[in-house]
Each structure stands twice: as structure tokens, then as C-alpha cells.
Amino acid sequence: MPLPVQREIDARGSFCPGPLMELIRAVRGSEVGDLIAVLSKDPGSRTDIPAWLKKAGHDLVAMEDEVGYTRFVARKVR
């Protein structure tokens, strides 16, 4: 069962660093405490998304491997 979220972005058509950019925009437009998911096929996201979340001070709640893509779930902390 995928974790329920406030917002889910399908960035599977985006290239590096597109999924990260889309996540940043979504986080900026969300409320503190919201869960935001992003779907990415970009292998760079596996390192870039956790690195950005850590730097920006948000939580990486889950990184779920699906067939052909990864679903990242973040919580906006501040």
C-alpha cells in the first residue's frame, strides 16, 4: 500500500534534474506537515532528492522502488 499523501507529482517524463525541480516547487507550495510524493525515472534522483531534502531541512519519509521508477515521499518540516 503506498503511503497516502497530500500531493503526488508524476515526474516520470522529466530528465535530470527535472524531478528534483518539480519536488522543490511542490514543497514550496505546500503547508508544513504535508506529505508530498514524486515519481521519478531519473537515476540521479536517488541521490539528489535525499541530498536536497537533508539540506533544505525536510524529511525523506519513504523511497519506494516500483517497476521502472522510484516513488519518493517527503514531509515538509519548516
Binding site: 535530470c16 534534474p17 528534483l20 525541480m21 522543490i24 539528489d48 541530498a51 536536497w52 539540506k55 533544505a56
Partner: peptide
């Protein structure tokens, strides 16, 4: 342009 995007993303 890709590197610049990454830098912008990483603040």
C-alpha cells in the same frame, strides 16, 4: 545548463 539547474536546486 543542467549543472546550473542543479546548483539552483541546491540553493
Amino acid at each position: 545548463a543542467t549543472i546550473v539547474s542543479g546548483a539552483a536546486a541546491m540553493d
